[in-house]
């Protein structure tokens, strides 16, 4: 997926959100660290372009809620969670780059309810690649693609990766690339 296609997809998701929630006052967009954060910001801009309304943004770092925290090989660096307005009674849209096993979203839901009881929670993702391990689905999907388990969907965003595209690679390649970049 190219940068151009990515923007079109985000514009479409923004339009879908506006269509589904004509009354935008009660919405809150929350990006899941890391790439969900810039994506939520871009959705906010698109929605503002369509309606002149500014939807508040939040950030979730789900590290401490992972279900594999005791078995995961690398200790993830914890970064901060920021939700400045009460989620109580709000319609929350969680935003992430790739929906895969569903475990990140499960963790995000647990974290979110520790901030209060939202009226409704929806999920927007850029890519849905299948292979769910939990009963979770997205409400807004940029593109659904068929993948094999050993493949890797790599979303690159200017804000995080200095490039703007979505790549379908495999684990072997990613591992090789990581080795080179850490040398």
């Amino acid at each position: 997926m190219s940068a151009r296609q990515m923007e079109l997809v985000l514009a479409r998701i923004a339009a879908e959100i506006v269509e589904k929630h004509p009354d935008l006052d009660n919405l809150l967009l929350i990006g899941i660290r890391r790439r969900g954060i810039p994506l939520a910001g871009r959705l906010q801009k698109h929605i503002q372009g369509l309606t002149q309304k500014n939807i508040p943004l939040g950030i979730l770092d789900i590290t401490l809620y992972r279900d594999d925290l005791t078995t995961v090989a690398a200790q993830p660096v914890v970064e901060s969670t920021r939700i400045d307005i009460p989620v109580e009674g709000r319609k929350v849209i969680l935003v992430d780059d790739v929906l895969y096993t569903g475990r990140t979203v499960r963790a995000a839901l647990d974290l979110l309810v520790d901030f209060g009881r939202p009226r409704q929670v929806e999920l927007a993702v850029l890519i849905d690649r299948g292979h769910r391990e939990l009963p979770i689905q997205a409400d807004y999907i940029g593109q659904a693609i068929q993948t094999a388990d050993e493949e890797v969907v790599e979303v690159q965003l200017l804000e995080v990766d200095k490039a703007e595209r979505v790549l379908l690679t495999n684990r072997e390649l990613v591992r090789k690339k990581r080795k080179i970049s850490t040398k």
């Binding site: 401490l64 090989a73 690398a74 200790q75 895969y100 990140t104 684990r171």
Partner: peptide, 16 residues
């Protein structure tokens, strides 16, 4: 407590 009680190896994992 988090850093000492949940030690990990030094490799990064893919978790998306």
């Amino acid at each position: 407590l988090y850093l000492l009680l949940l030690p990990g190896a030094s490799t990064q994992v893919v978790w998306d």
